[in-house]
Design a protein around this nucleic acid. Structure first.
Lengths: 223, 223
DNA sequence: CGTTAACAAAGTGTATGCAATCGTCATGCC
DNA sequence: GGCATGACGATTGCATACACTTTGTTAACG
């Protein structure tokens, strides 16, 4: 009876709701500061309030929504300062991952990283923004995994997911694609040399560039 | 006030449950791998299953419990490797905080940090472990706040809370108190000089020492 | 006319009931 | 005798109902 929905039924209904609501927030259907009415959401997704409540609790734990006791949930309004702090954190975390990757990646991981990186240059020359963005995600994931530190992986994944809505449009900036590749190249090169500090620094520089590119859009669109 | 029940009602019942269950886990009443039966917990705390469920969801988001669909929740069993990765993360995060603190602390924050640090030397000479541990917490909190980065603050606070159960006994090691103070001193000195890199390095060294001291106990007590 | 208090409506928080799912045990077949 | 399959029990997951808190509005009093 439940496996008939058009939604993918990976896990429990709560999980589906979490992703559904998170998507709405990320897409922009639900704006920062907007109230999240439990009954309305329940009706909209044709479920009861209980899974909605649990989903909101999880989203609150993720930081996507704010939940005041007895006063409902609202979409977290991230200030410019908070956003900047998150990007800064991201740069630091990626720096850590890159440094650890340079010191700890297995030969197999190194090979995969470099081959993917070299292959991605094709996407740059062809100007395939969408595909490059997909590869870019994979590239960074490689770094996170290569650090061989489960907790850092968690932290960096969490931060990245929170920043996802704001990172979307950065590749629209002219020349950003090629610059991104060059920055990746610096990271890969340092990792291949086993130079942890250089890799970390390169990664920090890279993310800071991305941050600036992204903040341009946000500052233009937000209040 | 709303405190008509015998229980202290700080916030919502769910919050109380979260803290209560988390306490049980931290204290050791609930051992890693132990099953968390919703009905049992509900009866034990004299509430219904609903707030227990929400509490478990939050605890799962915090990482203290694992929740398999339809199979209940169990206390997260942290492996030695995971624990090491968390301590390592902690060292990196504290390093970041110390570096930022060196560059960004206000004069008022610097003064508070140094005066507290100097005052703590008295606790070391008197061998007041309990009080020093309390001060130690405050010392590190100063660093977290001094970094002036809300997201890093969140991450480091989260990690610290997860490590709390394992950090408990470290000050029992002989001479750890004095060594801890010396390490603090190196951090404070670097921050006062405004030397970010030195402060970060000193903080990393410090936390790594703490990690080793703590892992000694864990390895001795765990499987 | 402004301020405050009380009431009403809306929405969250909690409790309980029912359905679906998973684990276990027993029985039958290979 | 061992393994697979089916049924039963236990526990989780979801839905609904009710109680309490909050907030906005209105009316009365200063």
């Amino acid at each position: 009876m439940r496996a008939k929905k058009n939604l993918i039924r990976d896990g429990t209904t709560v999980d589906v709701m979490v992703r559904a609501i998170a998507d709405r927030i990320v897409v922009g259907d639900l704006k920062p500061g907007g109230k999240l009415d439990e009954a309305t959401l329940a009706e909209r997704f044709a479920v009861s309030r209980t899974p909605i409540r649990e989903a909101l609790a999880q989203l609150a734990a993720m930081g996507l929504v704010d939940r005041r006791p007895n006063r409902g949930a609202i979409v977290t309004a991230v200030s410019q300062a908070q956003l900047a702090s998150m990007f800064e954190s991201m740069a630091e975390l990626e720096g850590i991952c890159a440094r650890f990757s340079a010191l700890r990646m297995t030969s197999h991981e190194r090979a995969a990283l470099e081959s993917g990186h070299q292959a991605s240059s094709r996407l740059v020359h062809l100007g395939k923004e969408e595909e490059y963005e997909a590869y870019n995600t994979e590239f960074h994931s490689c770094l996170y995994r290569g650090a061989h530190n489960t907790h850092v992986f968690e932290l960096v994944t969490l931060t990245r997911s929170r920043l996802a809505p704001f990172r979307r449009a950065q590749f629209r900036l002219s020349g950003r694609l090629a610059k991104s590749w060059d920055e990746h190249d610096a990271i890969v090169t340092a990792i291949m040399r086993g130079d942890g500090n250089a890799a970390g620094e390169a990664a920090r520089v890279h993310v800071n560039k991305v941050s600036n590119a992204s903040l341009v859009f946000v500052s233009g669109s937000s209040d």
